[in-house]
Design a protein around this nucleic acid. Structure first.
Lengths: 151, 151
DNA sequence: GACTCATGTAACCTATGATGTTACATATCT
DNA sequence: AGATATGTAACATCATAGGTTACATGAGTC
């Protein structure tokens, strides 16, 4: 794992796996795929459920399933659904500095940062879950499931 | 302080203050300006010294002083001198995933990330310390020192 | 030479955040 | 009733950044 974790990357991974399944998938199975804990899955999926992108059902035969059309949901939608976590590791030391020097530094750094943020947001807005799935099936046509036993 | 700290922002602040001074400035004074510890200052300045942008002198009258022409040193130079810390808070869960789904996700996220990185790097390469100083003097012409007593 | 001031650096402490884990309540299906 | 799942709080663990102390070294002052 790289040092800068990304809920986004993990959530997308989970979503694509779910989209491949007809029946609901349990947190346990998803956790096995993601090599993490079922509670962690539930935590991170809560945002998607509240946003209406997935559905969760309790009891026998329960689990997680898609509640949206992957062709109409973008990476930006997912990013927002998980709470729009910070994109950048760098930023200003202080948001409202008394020091004029610091204000000048902040201004110089902020412009590019804002541009880069807009670029990321715009890019993610143009990629749908369906196009991600397509890209995935292109590179591995036949038996996608060979890597993860989910049962 | 915002949650994502930035050595870069802090270092630039220090540099601009130093550039205003003729005589060397001690770590203690810089620490007071930055509201931190002298050891932290020395730690972060070590990279700049090794890169030759500043000089440090021991003993009486010692401290930190500029060893470069602010007109020729860019924010990118400084960024690299402090070790090119990660720019982004998001990234891939895994760099070499066995899972084809995860590879597809990574590819989709990586492109925009790379573009955004290039944008930041290019922007910072066009801003010199001198232009930062100029921007600062423009917004506060007369007595810049009123905020920070350094003696 | 003794004294003071300053950096250089290792070692340690502390706070924070991300993630993992346990425990238990609740809902659903057989 | 019993088995299966989610929902969630509470706690444990780990990594990182930042702060602090301690002490060695070098450079001026007297």
């Amino acid at each position: 794992m790289s040092r800068n974790s990304s809920k986004l990357s993990g959530v997308l991974h989970v979503l694509l796996h779910m989209a491949e399944q007809q029946a609901p998938v349990t947190s346990e199975k998803l956790a096995r795929i993601m090599q993490t804990n079922a509670v962690v899955i539930r935590r991170v999926m809560a945002g998607l459920r509240d946003a209406g992108y997935v559905r969760s059902e309790k009891g026998h035969g329960g689990g997680w399933s898609m509640a949206c059309d992957p062709a109409t949901v973008t990476l930006l939608d997912i990013y927002r659904a998980i709470g729009s976590p910070p994109l950048f590791a760098i930023g200003n030391r202080s948001d409202n500095p008394d020091c004029a020097v610091e204000r000048a530094v902040n201004e110089a750094l902020d412009g590019p940062l804002r541009q880069a943020e807009a670029l990321l947001i715009d890019s993610y807005a143009t990629v749908t879950l369906a196009s991600l799935s397509a890209g995935f099936h292109r590179q591995l046509p036949p038996d996608y499931a060979s890597h993860h036993r989910t049962d």
